[in-house]
Design a protein around this nucleic acid. Structure first.
Lengths: 245, 245
DNA sequence: CCGCCTATTATGTCCGGACTTATTGACGGC
DNA sequence: GCCGTCAATAAGTCCGGACATAATAGGCGG
């Protein structure tokens, strides 16, 4: 099939496919690393990198001398985190900052950011460009898509000193609402055609979708969704949505 | 600072220590992989394995050509999962089964299991030995410690067929109560002296503590806590506690 | 001074080899 | 038949090398 160019990702994807198709049954052992090396014409080291990826996804487990066992036909579909503690929010804020930075870079590279550059310079958050979804064709459920190119320059210390304010502030800056609740979903997804085309990926390729949901006291919901490569190697796209409360 | 024998774990632990001590400041770059190789007398590949571990813990991030940046002085303190979906429970059950098996092995090796062997053979769950905490010195908050040596022989298919029954069954077998809610906490910890002494670890060494909490409809709480090596390499100890509802 | 181009550099990927270790299964002794 | 021993095996760890790639820094020309 297609792939990310790197050999081990190719192998990982192929094995994932075969497991999903049932050619390697759940509970059975994969061929030995040496045999996989031969089969794919890659070094054992490369095959091991691929197996590392599958292991990280929970598809296989390995035991010395026994072999590599298929644990599941597909990665867990969904993995929910509720973010309540101060530590959660710090971690969350940092992860989100990285996501946004990556996305900003990708978008900038593709010159999408130039389509319309709007400056929302504020104390902490600096959004250097936004691309709004087509206002003429509003989403049936009332979402508005926003492609964000943002950075949190100089924010590090502030976040550490007052954790939790980061995301709230983003929402406040953009919508003037105070965040009352935060939730995060992570689930398996495939790359939508639109995103794949815009960013150079392959439509239908497996991906992780992270949806972060913020609600204010009135019940209005703000959502940021990011599409990630399963192995977490890069961020492909990010959208900021808004649901009128 | 010694360690698990493997070179990359040694290096990872040393780097973790130096980061925690502030000898590598948060936000700064680590020495290049080549320099670390020279410094530790290991191959670049081995150093990269160590950095992989740190990256997995969220301590560092890497960018091509730029270097390896220190992101945090220590791993996230806490990470909470709520277990609601069927998939969660399957994954949870499997993880717990592995934990218990590992613990059983460790306990058996140390001949603690022989102190008193009580057989609770039932349909699925087989607990071959239990060691109860000192009943004469009850825990102030009403917990009872139980060291468990258990196996789920032949349970694989049953669990797959009816996921979620595994833990519930354990609780039912031991206490005759039906589980209504499950929650899991993962947090950073250090090895308590008692556990370290009993199992050969180093007191104060960094560890992960996983606490799994089951509640029945009446509000009684059952807790299983496991102490894990941060990198997830082995289970050090496990205790089953009970709080009278 | 600005912008383009190029060289440098540190990580990313991959190779092929070697030795170690844990588990299994078979063999042989009791 | 039971148990301990030993060899075979497959993953775990590590080496040293090579080339690819991306981001930076510097040089060059306008």
């Amino acid at each position: 099939m297609r792939m990310s160019g790197t050999r081990y990702a190719e192998i990982a994807d192929d094995l994932t496919q075969q497991i999903a198709d049932g050619r390697f049954a759940v509970g059975s052992l994969l061929p030995t690393e040496l045999e996989l090396s031969a089969r794919y014409g890659a070094s054992r080291h490369t095959v091991r990198s691929a197996l590392d990826a599958l292991q990280g996804l929970g598809l296989v487990s390995r035991r010395k001398r026994v072999g590599t066992r298929v644990e599941a036909a597909r990665p867990p579909d969904r993995f929910r985190q509720s973010l309540t503690s101060v530590e959660d929010l710090v971690q969350f804020g940092e992860a989100h900052r990285r996501d946004v930075q990556d996305v900003a870079k990708v978008i900038a590279d593709r010159a999408l950011a130039d389509e319309l550059g709007c400056e929302l310079g504020r104390r902490w958050l600096r959004i250097s460009s936004l691309r709004w979804g087509d206002a003429a064709k509003p989403d049936p459920v009332g979402w508005t898509d926003v492609y964000v190119d943002a950075s949190y320059a100089g924010l590090g210390e502030a976040v550490r000193a007052a954790p939790g304010v980061l995301i709230s502030h983003l929402i406040e800056e953009m919508y003037g609402r105070r965040v009352a609740e935060i939730q995060q979903d992570v689930r398996a997804a495939t790359l939508p055609e639109a995103v794949a085309g815009a960013l150079g990926g392959d439509a239908g390729a497996p991906a992780l979708q992270i949806v972060r949901r913020y609600a204010d006291a009135a019940g209005a919901v703000f959502e940021i969704s990011s599409t990630l490569h399963p192995a977490g190697r890069f961020t492909l796209s990010s959208r900021l949505k808004r649901q009128a409360g």
